[in-house]
């Protein structure tokens, strides 16, 4: 068996007295696409934020490859550089052009010369059909275009793991498809992805594995087809029936 890209063991996180993650175990294999589903407040986003080391976990361990990234001795910035993140609200830098948004990490963190970084960025932008907008500022772009730029920015440094945090929740319905199509393409490239999502149809379609979170624990996980068609737990059934209608 190949070494997992990500491994979490007994991860616990609380805000004040509220226990948001209560002992989460999760392993993600190379090239695997994992969809986190669950109600608002079930801990999906917090889980992603813990992996990216923007929240400090209260207990448990997290490994990225063979590195224990929950160890306070590691350099957190170096770990974050190995992980790509796409946010619900895009979070593009409004004062930088599209091309500079995309090349920023390559230039500032990886110290790649500008010309080389821009060539890579342009090739990626071309692939998502946005090469002609490279010199535009983000506010001149539609929501769907902005989110595609954000995805390109996240993958421009070739991260080992891509985290998608409800990336279609802030988009108009007619713009969702163009973003999801891009994620589908990334899966085709073999990108390892952990995504929190409310798009059940998309999760069923693209995810290799679906993980249902409720009350800070993983209630159920398995191949998408299995979780969606034959959920084992009552809580999963209740949650899914609200989304998909009673089976």
């Amino acid at each position: 068996m190949t070494e997992p890209v990500l491994r979490m063991e007994g991860v616990r996180k609380s805000f004040g007295d509220a226990l948001v993650l209560d002992g989460v175990d999760l392993t993600v294999a190379p090239h695997e696409v994992v969809a986190l589903i669950g109600a608002s407040g079930s801990g999906k986003s917090t889980l992603l934020r813990c992996i990216n080391l923007v929240e400090r976990i209260d207990d448990g361990r997290i490994w990225l490859g063979d590195l224990d990234i929950s160890d306070p001795r590691i350099a957190a910035d170096r770990v974050r550089a190995r992980i790509g993140v796409v946010f619900q609200q895009f979070n593009l830098f409004p004062h930088l052009r599209v091309i500079d948004n995309v090349t920023l990490a390559s230039r500032a963190v990886l110290r790649i010369p500008r010309a080389q970084a821009e060539a890579t960025a342009l090739a990626l932008l071309d692939r998502v059909g946005l090469a002609d907008r490279a010199r535009a500022y983000p506010d001149r772009l539609s929501g769907g275009q902005q989110q595609r730029v954000a995805i390109v920015r996240a993958i421009a440094t070739n991260p080992e793991l891509l985290l998608l945090d409800e990336i279609t929740s802030a988009l108009d319905p007619e713009l969702v498809a163009e973003v999801l199509d891009l994620v589908r393409e990334l899966k085709g490239d073999g990108t390892t992805i952990v995504m929190a999502t409310h798009e059940m149809a998309f999760a069923r379609d693209v995810a290799d594995r679906v993980v249902f979170l409720d009350g800070g624990v993983i209630v159920e996980q398995g191949p998408a087809a299995q979780v969606f068609t034959r959920p084992q737990h009552e809580r999963t059934r209740t949650f899914l029936s609200r989304f998909l209608g009673p089976a």
């Binding site: 007994g10 616990r12 007295d17 226990l19 209260d58 207990d59 448990g60 361990r61 929950s70």
Partner: peptide
């Protein structure tokens, strides 16, 4: 963090 939870050696 709720006080009554056991804490692992790693933590």
């Amino acid at each position: 963090m709720p006080a009554n939870l056991p804490i692992s050696d790693v933590e």
